[in-house]
Amino acid sequence: MNKLPEDEFAQELEELRSKSQHLFKLESRLEELEKRCSEYKDSSDKLREEVGIYQKLLDEWDWFFQHSSEMLCIATKQGYFRRVNPAFVKALGYSEKELLSRPIIDFVHPDDREKTQKEYEKLINGNQDAVDFRNRYRHADGSWHHIAWVCPSLTPGVNNLYAIARDITEQLKHDEQILYKAMHDPLTGLYNRAAFSEMLDRAMARADRHNEGVVALYLVDLNRFKEINDTYGHSVGDEVLTQVAQRFANVNRKSESVFRLGGDEFAFLLEDIAPVEVKPLAQRIVKSIESPIALSDGAFSLTVGCSIGVSFYPNSATEVKKLIDQADAAMYRVKRASKNGFEIFHQP
């Protein structure tokens, strides 16, 4: 076997060493690539899993948006609806296309537009965390619906407004009916005793704020009413009360209020500036029931009169009970005289 010259041997050894080092680098690089490939695969799996979770959340949100009984909407900074849910469409009677194609302010009642615009600007500018307000929206049938809104303001990176709304029109009607029943007499429709107490307190407070403010209280008791009730029965008595109440309501003017306190007892409140002219209202009250009351069945007519006592706040009384007691005393003086008319309370 021939030996390689020493120079060639050294050269081949160097080449072998170089190839060996290169191979080592390749193997290291291959291991690195395999590791990275495995990491990428893990990352890809995780990413795919996260995308799946995200998509599931989107699907759940979309389902909630579409099926919520609450009115939900997404709006742009420019004042247009970007998306509305079926409950929103149903509540206002428009198609989704109609709602999305017009500025939001077009649907708002003219008297509520300035307020609505201010609330919208607060949300866009992030001046407060959220707004909770009410306004009126025109329904597709032309009627106005009361809408209550809750909407968080814009946060950094968010370009749309998200809001929950509720049509509270029927709720407000129901509340108004309850309030009406609480403050009105069911037989005559006049204000009742509860309303009398509240409105008298308010009238006295207004008089206190005005140097010359006066409240005149007229207590009115019908004459012959017990006789009518005893003779013809309560149904006829109720009809008499109803017609008398209507006549009293017709003589009532802007600064005056009329009440049925119970039975055949009524009251008027007159707010004015001293000196108060008592006689005009008293005469209108007496005159309003001078003519006979024709019953609905047309069988006969009945005549009633009234006795009126008048007292003043703060001239003769400075508290509610005393004011009522004084008017009551004056009224009974008229009643004992067996005549129709009025009398002003005077300190003995």
Results as ranks from 00 to 15, higher is better:
W149Y: 12
A182P: 06
A163I: 04
Q117H: 12
R113K: 15
K97Q: 15
M183D: 05
K97F: 11
H109S: 08
F196W: 10
M183V: 02
W144M: 01
A148S: 13
I147Q: 00
V158W: 05
Y137E: 03
Q171S: 13
R193F: 10
T169R: 10
Y191E: 03
K97V: 14
F133W: 02
G157W: 10
I164W: 02
I168Y: 05
K115A: 13
N192W: 03
A163V: 02
I168Q: 09
S143L: 09
G142C: 01
T155S: 13
K173A: 12
H146D: 09
Y120E: 03
G157N: 13
H139M: 05
G157V: 03
N125A: 14
F196Q: 06
D185P: 00
I147F: 01
Y137W: 11
R136T: 01
D175G: 04
V131A: 04
H146G: 04
Q171I: 15
G142H: 04
H184P: 02
I104T: 04
L100F: 06
D185G: 08
L187P: 02
L154D: 06
R138G: 05
D106Q: 00
H146N: 07
K115W: 11
Y137G: 05
V150N: 14
E170A: 14
D141V: 01
I105K: 00
A165G: 12
A163W: 04
L172M: 13
F107T: 01
Q128P: 06
L161G: 01
H145V: 09
E170P: 06
I147D: 07
K118A: 12
G189D: 07
R136W: 12
K173T: 07
P186Q: 10
Y162F: 14
Y162G: 08
G157E: 03
L154Y: 02
K181W: 09
A194C: 08
R134Q: 15
L187D: 05
F196K: 00
F107K: 00
T188M: 02
R113E: 09
A130I: 04
L179T: 13
R193E: 09
A163K: 01
I124S: 04
L179H: 11
A182Q: 08
K115C: 07
I164D: 07
E170Q: 15
I105V: 15
R138Q: 15
D129Y: 10
R136I: 03
E121G: 02
A148E: 11
G126N: 03
